[in-house]
């Protein structure tokens, strides 16, 4: 689920905007660190810290978008990929300088700890909370992109930027907002998941492959795709590690290759 919340943000930037944003994990990491710092250092309550993670990461990404990303929209994939690798390296260095080698500690509030009974079985409360939270998020995003004016505008702008511009859509601002939303979601995902995927300086690189797989398998430009892909991969990965630990992550990669060869545009991809 965490994978989903983070990846859906990536799907927003990468899919809707057509930018190969490998540096997405950076925003997720930032979200995790913000949450941790806000709670541990300033005693901010958990829900507020989540909001802070979302808002601050969005704001930070607007800044980056303005000075760096926007120059690269028209450039080839190679430039985008390289730029992102550079950004990841810088972010990792900064994170390490500030936070050192340790994972950022996360203290869940009491009401999210412990177990909760669902259908007569015990589940960790936090995971149930995560699933519910993600569910709500997914639904609101779906309606957001499919039903609202903003969604229509983004889709139009990606389809034909010049045309969208000429019918009076401010594509520059639109892209900026979209990017901020995508990154904000990553920040939120990173913050939410900090308890399960420990946040530390190597984060953007370690999980990069997973984010990418989720988006590529799910398909660019769709919100449903990454959701299904994240579920599939999450389940496959867990199952595989549980039953045949000797294979490790092997199956996930093999499945990725298989799916991509079968449907190069991804499961729900609109465009190749």
């Amino acid at each position: 689920m965490i994978l989903y919340v983070i990846s859906v943000g990536l799907s927003v930037t990468m899919g809707l905007m057509g930018f190969i944003n490998l540096a997405h994990g950076v925003f997720a990491m930032a979200g995790g660190f913000i949450l941790s710092t806000a709670m541990a250092r300033f005693g901010v309550p958990f829900p507020l810290a989540l909001v802070a993670a979302f808002v601050l990461v969005s704001l930070g990404s607007i800044f980056l978008e303005k000075i760096l990303y926007s120059r690269l929209y028209a450039r080839g994939e190679l430039s985008q990929v390289l730029f992102c690798i550079g950004l990841i390296l810088v972010a990792m260095a900064v994170a390490r300088l500030i936070y050192g080698n340790l994972a950022a500690p996360v203290f869940l509030p009491d009401y999210l700890r412990g177990q909760v009974q669902v259908l007569g079985r015990d589940f960790p409360t936090y995971r149930v909370f995560l699933i519910l939270f993600s569910g709500v998020l997914i639904l609101s995003l779906w309606t957001g992109v499919e039903r609202t004016r903003w969604g229509a505008m983004v889709r139009a702008a990606v389809d034909n930027r010049g045309m969208a511009q000429s019918v009076g859509i401010n594509t520059k601002r639109l892209f900026m907002i979209t990017f901020a939303l995508g990154s904000g979601l990553a920040g939120l995902g990173g913050a939410l998941g900090a308890d399960i995927l420990p946040v530390q300086w190597g984060y953007p690189f370690e999980h990069l492959v997973y984010f990418l797989i989720v988006v590529a398998v799910g398909g660019l430009g769709s919100l449903r795709g990454p959701f299904v892909a994240a579920l599939l991969i999450g389940i496959a990965d867990t199952a595989c590690k549980y039953w045949v630990p000797a294979l490790g992550a092997f199956l996930v990669y093999a499945a990725t290759i298989g799916i991509l060869l079968w449907r190069p545009q991804g499961l729900f991809g609109v465009r190749a």
């Binding site: 092997f250 990669y253 545009q265």
Partner: peptide
């Protein structure tokens, strides 16, 4: 036969698989 992001992902997945094999 694929291009762009798909090609990028496929090449990445192949080396990731090899890494996993070498690791295990």
């Amino acid at each position: 036969r694929t291009r762009a992001l798909t090609l990028l992902m496929l090449t990445l997945a192949i080396t990731a698989i090899l890494l996993e094999v070498a690791n295990k």
